[in-house]
Design a protein around this nucleic acid. Structure first.
Lengths: 203, 203
DNA sequence: AGCATGGTGGTACGGTCGTATTACGAAGGA
DNA sequence: TCCTTCGTAATACGACCGTACCACCATGCT
């Protein structure tokens, strides 16, 4: 056998090229030739490692979500010593706002994929549900534990609150993306709503 | 001069064909031939009335937002005698959820346009900001008046609350669109958050 | 040493898309 | 009456896209 190249690594390289060019020109506008050029390989190679464009797009979506969940996870783990539910929830929500270029691209492409999945059944079968559900569970757990510790308003339903906060963050994420709102403004709104549900510890 | 046809009406007919076919197959997948076929006219006619595809898309966006603001306005005006700020706010937020087919299509296409506007500068110049800002002002005013009337928690900032509620509704709208959440569930979450800010009139 | 095989490149093919071109009927003003 | 102009049609053109096909290395087993 010849060179024996790591297929998974090659696929990752090409997928990142896809993310870059799609972040620049929009997911709808990327062709296989663009991806190949951005990755510095020939068109034939993209075909070789992915076969069809649909498979390339599906792989790109998984690559994107993987990278982002890893990023959020790292951000959460970066807090030395558990800083309490409020700070954790705040980090969880604020990290998912499109503040820097990387998360801007993530939001843009994730939303593009989501919209595409409405009319494309191959995309609809992909794990669009998993990541949001995980975030919802995590935030709900955070709120529950805060309530039990007397750090959060016990009068609210934790899951309803979590759903609302996540939807709020997602909605403002889109607003930021289209230039309607600045990231700091969105963060302020989120913190304001967190202040409401997280009460200061009353003895 | 010959037949003298109403250009604006023709454009509306074609734009509605665009909305229909884009709602079925996705905005990215619609071509001028599809629109022509859906409208029952020749490709040449679409060219004749719009010239270029970009102009067709821009007109389609305006048509879409016009129809929807008219719809929401009608829904609000349908309440005989002002039913109070709480019911008005609830109607404003719930009407914008993609519950029936028409608003499903509206959300799908509006979000598609928004995403496109991130990478397409011709679309970015369109009035994406106006409608959301109007809704924000309306809801803020509603909350302020409710606070002054003692019907809403005076401790919250009306605009921050309005921004949060609208972002929440938009975020859950997308969730509904991709099948992650059911419309009734989203409505329940919204009502729950409205219950929080609208206090029962305490004498 | 030789050859089967994995990786790579170039390029051609069929289809579709947006746009441009050309043509023609029909109606009202001179 | 004729002719200018509006509306409508059919079709051609050039570009691009995804995919398929063919050719060429380079390597490692037998």
């Amino acid at each position: 056998m010849p060179k024996r190249v790591d297929h998974e690594e090659r696929r990752s390289q090409i997928a990142e090229a896809l993310v870059r060019v799609a972040g620049r020109r929009g997911l709808h506008a990327v062709g296989m030739r663009d991806v190949a050029a951005e990755a510095g390989v020939s068109l034939r190679l993209v075909q070789y490692y992915f076969g069809t464009k649909e498979k390339l797009l599906l792989y790109g979506l998984r690559h994107l979500t993987d990278r982002f969940t890893a990023r959020v996870g790292a951000r959460l783990r970066a807090e030395d010593r558990d800083p309490g539910p409020r700070a954790t929830a705040e980090a969880l929500l604020l990290t998912s706002l499109p503040a820097d270029e990387e998360s801007r691209i993530f939001h843009l492409l994730y939303t593009s994929y989501a919209i595409l999945s409405v009319t494309d059944e191959a995309l609809a079968a992909q794990p669009f549900i998993d990541s949001p559900d995980a975030a919802e569970d995590a935030l709900t757990g955070l709120l529950r534990r805060a309530q039990e510790a007397g750090l959060a308003d016990p009068g609210v339903d934790a899951r309803t609150e979590a759903i609302g906060l996540l939807a709020m963050a997602a909605g403002m994420g889109t607003s930021i993306l289209v230039g309607q709102r600045r990231p700091e403004s969105a963060a302020e709104v989120l913190r304001h709503h967190l202040d409401r549900v997280f009460t200061s510890p009353t003895p």
